[in-house]
Structures are given as C-alpha cells and as structure tokens.
Nucleic acid binder design. Sequence first.
DNA 1: TGTACATCAGTGAACGCGCGTTCACTGATGTAC
DNA 2: TGTACATCAGTGAACGCGCGTTCACTGATGTAC
Lengths: 220, 220
Amino acid sequence: VSEAKVGYHHGDLRQALVRAALEMARERGAQGAQAVVLREATRRAGVTPRAAYRHFADREALLRAAAQVALGEMARAIENRQSQHPAAAAGDPAALLTGVGLGYIHFALDEPGWFDVAFFAMADMLNTASPPARGPAGRSPYEQLQDVLQALVATGLLAPERFADAAVTCWSGVHGFAALTALGPLRELPRELVNAQAERLVADLVDAVTRRSTNYRSAK
Amino acid sequence: VSEAKVGYHHGDLRQALVRAALEMARERGAQGAQAVVLREATRRAGVTPRAAYRHFADREALLRAAAQVALGEMARAIENRQSQHPAAAAGDPAALLTGVGLGYIHFALDEPGWFDVAFFAMADMLNTASPPARGPAGRSPYEQLQDVLQALVATGLLAPERFADAAVTCWSGVHGFAALTALGPLRELPRELVNAQAERLVADLVDAVTRRSTNYRSAK
DNA sequence: TGTACATCAGTGAACGCGCGTTCACTGATGTAC
DNA sequence: TGTACATCAGTGAACGCGCGTTCACTGATGTAC
C-alpha cells in the first residue's frame, strides 16, 4: 500500500504502477519476478485493474518496465561500489573490474527480488545499440563491464583477442555466484561467509582474466 | 499424455506422477519449475487430482521428488561426458574437472527445464551427509566436483587451503554460464557459439583453479 | 479351498481463490471560439 | 471571460480459467482362519 491517487486522474499512474511492481518484487524477494502481479499493482496505486491497460499492453509490459528500472538500479549500485574504492576511483582498471563484480553480487544479495526482475531486461541490454536501462553515469551494467575490460586492454593487462572470453568468464562467474547465494541453494549461508567468498571469487576472476592474458602475450 | 493406468489400482502412481512432472518440465523448458502442475500430472497419469495426495503432501513435495530425479540425471550427464574424454577416463584430474564443468553446462543447454527443476534439489545435495540425488556411480554433482578437486589436491595442482574457494569459483562459473545461455539473456545465441564459449570458460576456470594454486605454493 | 474383513488406493464432485483481461461506460480536463 | 465539446483517464462489473486442496465415499486387494 504505497500511494493512493488524489482525484479522478492519478497524475502519473504509469510510474506509480512500476513503483508498485518494484515494491512487490522487493518484498517477496524469493519469489522473483512472479511476485509482480498486475492486479495488485493497481490495488496499491489505488486504481481499478482496468486502468493499468491504459498504460501497459499486458502484464508482461509492466514487468519489463519494472525490469528496466531494476537494471538501472544495478548500474547505480556498481557505480557506487566503484566510487567507494580508492584505487577504482583513481581509475585502476583491475580495481574497477572488482567493483563491477562485487557491485553485481551485492546488488543481488541486497535486493534479490530486483535482481531476478532485472534479469528480464538483460536481454534488451545486450543487443540494442542503445540499451534502455542505465545508471546515473549513463552506462548499463554490461557496458560497465565492457568499459573496464577495454581499460584493461588499453593498459596491456588483457590481450585484445581475449576481450570477448573475458566478458563471458566474468559475467558467468558473478552471475552464478549471485544466483547461488541470493536465490539458490546457498541462500542460507551466513552473510559474512558469503561476503568473504565473494571477495575471493572476484579476485579469482580478475586474476584469471589478467594473468591468462599475460601468458598469451608472452607466449605468442 | 504419457501413460494411462490399467485398472483401478495404478501400480506405481507415485513414479508415474514424477515422470509426468519431468515430462512437463522438459516440454516447457523455458518456464522452468513453474511448468510442473500437480493437476496436470494426475491428468497425464490418467488419475483423479485427489489421488496425488495419497503419495505427496502437496505440490511442492511432488516438485521436490522430480527435482531429485533431475539432479540424478545431471550427475549421469557429467559421468557420461567424463567417460567420453580419453584423458578424463584415464584419470587426469584437470580433464575430469573439465568434464564436470562441461557436463553441467550441456545438461542445462540440452534440458533447460530439468536444469531449472534440479536447482530445487541442490540445497538438499549440499548439507546432508547422504544427498538423495546421485548418478549411476553413486555421486551427486557436488560430490563429483569435490572428488576432482580432491584429486587435484592429491596431485599437487591445487593447494589444500584453496579447496573451498576453488569449489565456489568453479560452481559459480559454470552455473552462471548455464543460467545465462540456457534460460537467460544469452539463450538466443547460436548453439555453436555457445559451445565454443563453454569450452573456453571451463578452460579458464581450470586454469584459474590450478595456476593460482601453483603460485600460492611457489610463493609461500 | 473358501469366505469375512481390514486395509489401501483410488473416485467424483466441489470449494475458494486470484489471476489476466474485456465490456460499455462516465467523470475530469483543457482547448477553440 | 464564458461556454461547447473533443479528448483522455479512469470506473465498475464481469468473464473464463485453472489452480491447489478438501469432502465423504467406494472399489480392489490380500490376509486370517
């Protein structure tokens, strides 16, 4: 029960519905995207179910709108983490990559429902020339990853031909860890343990990406 | 519509329901565990909805039973892949680890619905002293991973104190890749490309686990 | 070998639920003259 | 400045659906004597 409309006209019902959807996803984190229920969103907005169809073609359209907002929040979380780490803030590419990974993971741990919902927007994030969901700095999470990998290439820590593989390895690693610990079989593990393992996992990934590349460069 | 009962008594309704649940998950792979519908399982078994409650407390109990079978199938897929690779069959630990990773990933790609369902049994697989879902060789997927990591320790390729980290890194990596490509935003990628990237990802993981350890051993 | 009877595995019908979606509509808003 | 009217955003009631789950029951099975 977030907000009720004032008069007959709501003002910005569309945004109110998206906000209600995110509320539901957050509250019922373990349920993930299933928690987003169109009728309940209208209830929370203080409006008739039918009213939602003035702004969204169907339930899926509402879910996708919420997913884009959630993905933008993830981008913001990544930026925050990067700016909090001195070396990353100073522009060190390895530290920036660590920030992307830990930002991704901790967003999932802090907001498992949003993480699951954001998953729906990741497909759009990829192929389009202009992904719709970005953070304050105007970059989507995938662009943030690409940016830091690009920086690693520029500083010679990553071989250019390893760029695509590095992106897959990093994304897979942090996504898998996030899925296992935030929503999956490891979700009951004590948070401290998970935090420590997250640090080591990301360190492993950074090492794998940079060191392998060094070998490549010295061997060829 | 798999099998109809013969007479009044079914014979083995419990197993028939589990089989029907797995059928549904397989057919509607993208829907994952949601595809498992109790009423429909009874319909497929040629039986009244009420009959299911003679064998399962509720829908979740049916789902969990199906999940254990699916997890056992994953263990079998991993064994198959290991036995097909000469070096792995010969007992080479690194090749065995590659087999675990690629077996995990390809099970997800081949049977996305079962993969999603099996996820529910992974929690049981972990903590219990005797996980209920195993493959023909009597090992659960997680035990298979532990076995090969143990072999790596035995041959000196993995430092003992890195055992737990290695397990997390490997599981996260393959699980994330599987989730992204089998059910997630990368699910539309051409299968050939995915296969090639899977090979490289798993190679990266094996390297990360073994090489890091070598450094540890030589540096300390 | 035959019958009585307890046990077990299913029947058949119904329940309440909440969902997504559609109907023809009405109240509020703002623009044209 | 005031009124007519088109436009837009919502109403209110209803639909069909399929779900999980529960009721008191009945048909088949197998064991005891």
